[in-house]
Design a binder for these strands. Structure first.
Lengths: 145, 145
DNA sequence: CTTGATGCAAATGGTTTGCATGTTT
DNA sequence: AAACATGCAAACCATTTGCATCAAG
């Protein structure tokens, strides 16, 4: 696994070294995400935050930038059903469960799917990529009411 | 768990007994699904099939009918990301993995998530409902190329 | 007859795209 | 200057909704 530069300068240098261009949108999107280290930001939330620092960045550019950063391996997107996708750093690897009742997102350890993944590989030859999945269900509080 | 009547008459009788109305759309949707016992039909596929028997049934009615049958516990919908939802009978309980490369849907046994579910409950108090989840990944063929 | 289901058209919401223009390298 | 990213508006696609009408009970 390649080392993941953590500071914004490290990430930018890494992208530049790969021949990618550094633009305002990319810089500010990364900055916003670094300012919300625990956040799972939707495109809209991202756009709101970005517009505080760079009001001229268009929503469609946020989409394109998030997609670019995901392709580049910097970000990970997570989606379930019709709910909007959320993004976080790929280096902060974990899985997600979401309460159907209150909407709370619970972070599951990155190895939560390991056993299932092994079983799918062994029994079905299927190599699971559970990174983008949200498991629906009821959180502790909502389950007890 | 209530007994699941299998024939169309049984299902209809069951719905009627619960005070629900039996309409052409509901009858034909059920018939189509019974005619595709292994299928995971999207709303559009459902609409195509239904229109052969009942051309006047509107697409929005298919949506409403599918939702109704899901609420009634007869059908289950499965969705991932932006892909259209697919429906099958609730009595045919299983989980789904989908190849990101070729789109093949692999049916996983209904207990595939049991271990993960137990772990989520024990460690996080989270009661998983993995019924509507599709695990992305690569199927055997696409993984070997 | 009363309640609920349907047809239709129009709206919605998240996301994508075509194209001319602006920026990075 | 060449390659690429962006702004903008318009398109897209699955799905939902308001409302007048129709059918099931």
């Amino acid at each position: 696994m390649a080392s993941s530069p953590t500071g914004i300068d490290g990430i930018l240098a890494d992208l530049r070294a790969r021949g990618e261009r550094i633009t305002t949108a990319r810089r500010v999107v990364l900055q916003v995400l670094l300012d919300h280290p625990d956040g799972h930001l939707t495109i809209d939330e991202l756009a709101d935050q970005v517009s505080e620092q760079a009001p001229d960045v268009h929503l469609s550019t946020i989409y394109r930038t998030a997609e670019f950063l995901e392709q580049a391996g910097v970000l990970v997107s997570v989606r379930l059903g019709a709910s909007p996708a959320v993004y976080h750093f790929a280096s902060n690897a974990h899985h997600h469960a979401r309460c159907e009742n209150c909407g709370a997102v619970i972070e599951l350890p990155g190895n939560a799917f390991d056993a299932l993944g092994r079983r799918l590989l062994r029994d079905h030859g299927f190599r699971a990529h559970p990174n983008h999945v949200v498991i629906p269900g009821l959180c502790r509080d909502c389950d007890n009411s």
